[in-house]
Computed example of a mutant assay.
Amino acid sequence: MTWSINSIPSQEGRTVFVTGANSGLGFDTAQALLEKGATVILGCRTLEKAERSRQKLLDETDCGKIDVLEIDLADLEKVNEALDKIAVKYKKLDLLINNAGVMAPPQTFSKQGFELQFAVNHLSHMALTLKLLPLIAKQPGSRVVTVSSGAQYMGKINLDDLQGGEGYDRWSSYSQSKLANVMFALELSKRLQQSNLDIASLSAHPGLARTNLQSTSVKLNGSWQEAIAYKLMDPMFQSSRMGALPQLLAATDPTAKTGEQYGPRFNFRGYPKICRIAPSALNSDEREQLWQLSEKLIGDAVDISKGKELLSTKK
């Protein structure tokens, strides 16, 4: 049976936090969940973008359960400050969707000096997940969905040079960050199960979805070759609303299980189904090493101590 927006069960009473909710997959995900009755926190890089998205959603959706949060994932200290606001305002969090991302920019660094794609796509989402874990754990049956990409299948984790200091290649760094997303989701699932926490961790990827990532990449790199390639490939791309279906399935379908990954039926477009995880992500030793290294890089910038404590408790 085809899974679509209509397959989403009622989300009444659920509180959801979506990063990168101002456009593309994040916006479409937020809209679908709002239409099903959820309270949605829009996580966006600036308040201006967040308020603009909030107003558009209010105009298009018959629901007012929308909150906004300014969260700059390129600065771990600002991530920490933003999440403190959620902890004060909300008593529980049913669903976290780690959706925001950057794709193939020229070599750029986060506020803490990390390669931007690794910082935004992986480190900040790991940090915010662990910081919010005590809030998520208050709601039985809660879920964390981490959004990856088909680039995971081409990714390789360079544990000796995660920041690309020995020679930056923007697409290799992007693929590494998307593989890291899946590795994090799997490792989190394992640790949640070991701690007997009733939280599911899943991953999803949109296939070839038409979002602002493509135009932003072309603009930042000034690549006419890339612009032509996207133009030629355009008929293969599906809408961002279709691309959002895998993460919506992972977030809401009662049969979706921790550790699973969902993607388009043909892995680049189509309705969602359970899909193959990149073989490199199945290496448990590498996942453990990546986790430990990531914790060290997050350091004291984000207070993840309570989340780590929850996961270290074997029950």
Rank of each mutant, 00 (worst) to 15 (best):
M1R: 11
M1L: 10
F17A: 03
G20H: 00
S23E: 10
G26N: 02
G26E: 02
F27I: 05
D28F: 11
T29L: 05
A30F: 03
Q31S: 12
Q31H: 08
A32G: 07
L34F: 05
E48A: 14
A50P: 09
E51A: 13
L58Y: 00
L69K: 08
D75E: 15
V79M: 07
N80H: 09
K85R: 14
Y90V: 07
D94Q: 09
L95Y: 04
I97F: 03
V102E: 03
M103W: 13
P106F: 06
P106N: 14
Q107L: 12
Q107C: 12
Q107R: 15
Q107H: 13
G113H: 05
G113R: 05
L116Y: 12
L116A: 15
V120F: 04
N121H: 06
N121C: 10
L132D: 02
L133P: 02
P140H: 13
V144S: 01
V147A: 01
V147D: 00
S148T: 06
A151S: 13
I157H: 01
E166R: 13
R170I: 05
S173I: 10
S175Q: 06
L179K: 02
V182G: 02
M183E: 00
L186V: 04
E187N: 08
K190E: 13
Q193H: 12
N196P: 02
L197D: 00
D198T: 10
D198F: 06
L202H: 01
A209T: 01
A209D: 04
L213V: 05
L213E: 01
S217N: 14
K219M: 14
G222M: 10
A227P: 02
Y230T: 04
L232H: 07
M233A: 15
Q238I: 11
M242Q: 14
L248P: 00
L248Y: 03
A250Q: 07
A250T: 10
T252D: 08
P254A: 11
K257A: 08
E260H: 05
G263A: 12
F268S: 08
G270F: 08
P272S: 06
C275P: 00
S280V: 08
S294K: 00
G307P: 03
K308W: 06
K308D: 08
